[in-house]
Design a protein around this nucleic acid. Structure first.
Lengths: 248, 248
DNA sequence: AAGTGGTCTAGACCACTAC
DNA sequence: TAGTGGTCTAGACCACTTA
């Protein structure tokens, strides 16, 4: 077995945090791949020269961060969360009967244009900033439920295209991460009621001028950096908005 | 010091979960009040006849649930959920221009009646249960903004009256706590769009039949016990609903 | 200085899984 | 049956707060 140099350092950082970081480093170096089992706890404790309790506390946190998954009797595995529910964390639309499903995105429009004053405020952009705007129709159980109008800075999302959006394998925020290195870690949403226009009513299949639930969203990356502005219109005939995250 | 009967039971439930439950029960019984310090870890470990490590694991979870707050060197405190600066934790209505104010409640109706089927489900009530229903008009900056229709079990809220509601000094959830020993620690809200009836339109001063933002809320005490069912209608002309808590 | 929560140890035994 | 993670112990010492 490979013997790790002791993780103990003179810094004030708790030992279990150092162990956690060491495991993260090994994951980043590809020592263990997604879906693979990592070595058993006793072995890791020996390798890092810490007690089982300390090792477990480090693994506890990594499991809480959904980076590792533990299965009693089987082992600890590197979590796979490319296209899993991790990226649906901010999707809070549920069917009124309580059933939960993933949305399927259908891209309707894509263009590059000057940012509006509102977008400059929400995305903290400069005076001559440009944005990509695209429109997404969200389908749940073959119901056309929500229409999103999304704006992102052309600087942060260089060379975004309709093709890239339509060809993405999983969620939009997953694309942001893999294609542009942008991690959406939090969103701020404001809800009100608004009427829809002709095009939107056609896409959603509801009468023009009807009042729907309108959601304004600013999505944030690390350090409270706003990265996406989004206006959504939700048809709440069969679906509703849940104040807390839902586990699909 | 009061000696607790050992929490050890023959069930398969882990000891630290039993300790967590025992602490929750003591909180529910009012042994320690919000903002107070609970006894030190070593004392609690002695009282429950468990090791420090096990006691800490129970407290860890309660801290993660934001029911307790730990401060190194000072002690562990019962989190303040709905009084003083956290009065309006669950009040998520903000003015669109961003300014924040306290709502002023105006009580419109009060009655005792049989629980509906929906209320029995949401509040987990028995077949012949009764509820108090009361209606509150919420005013912000002299705007009539929201109308709440609130139902609570007559068993949990014995002898609630319009007088008690109207004479309360602070928030409704503060009254629940001081008058009935009920702590609201979490709410689950579902948002949709609905039209309002004649009486509601009169109280809110908007046209009859208009579509407003409708909020269904179940409020929970410790142990996920539902204690209040509420249907609100919010006029979003000048105000909106924020997905996250706002600091007033 | 005394008391609090935070970290860490070096084990033990249990519950579950795979073979 | 062997090996895994899950629970639990009975301490020790450290970091921080308060007086």
């Amino acid at each position: 077995m490979k013997q790790e140099s002791p993780v103990i350092s003179l810094s004030g950082v708790p030992l279990y945090q150092q162990v956690k970081q060491a495991v993260l480093d090994l994951l980043a170096q590809g020592e263990w791949k997604q879906g693979e089992a990592i070595p058993p706890e006793r072995e890791l404790a020996e390798r890092f020269q810490v007690s089982i309790g300390t090792l477990r506390k480090a693994i506890d946190e990594l499991a809480a961060d959904t980076i590792l998954t533990r299965h009693q009797g089987r082992g600890t595995f590197v979590a796979i969360h490319n296209q899993s529910q991790h990226f649906f964390k901010f999707f809070k639309v549920v069917k009124k009967d309580g059933s939960k499903t993933y949305p399927i995105a259908e891209f309707k429009r894509f263009k590059k244009r000057r940012a509006t004053q509102l977008e400059k405020e929400k995305l903290q952009l400069g005076p001559n900033a440009e944005v990509y705007e695209f429109i997404v129709l969200q389908n749940l159980n073959d119901d056309k439920v929500m229409i999103d109008t999304i704006s992102v800075s052309t600087k942060l999302f260089a060379k975004l295209s309709l093709e890239k959006l339509a060809n993405k394998k999983s969620t939009l925020y997953n694309l942001y991460q893999h294609e542009f290195g942008i991690n959406v870690i939090d969103v701020d949403e404001r809800l009100s009621v608004n009427t829809i226009n002709a095009i939107q009513s056609k896409w959603l299949g509801v009468a023009e001028g009807r009042s729907l639930l309108q959601i304004h969203r600013v999505a944030y990356s690390y350090n409270n950096q706003p990265v996406e502005w989004r206006v959504s219109l939700l048809n709440t005939d069969k679906y509703e908005y849940a104040s807390k995250e839902v586990n699909i």
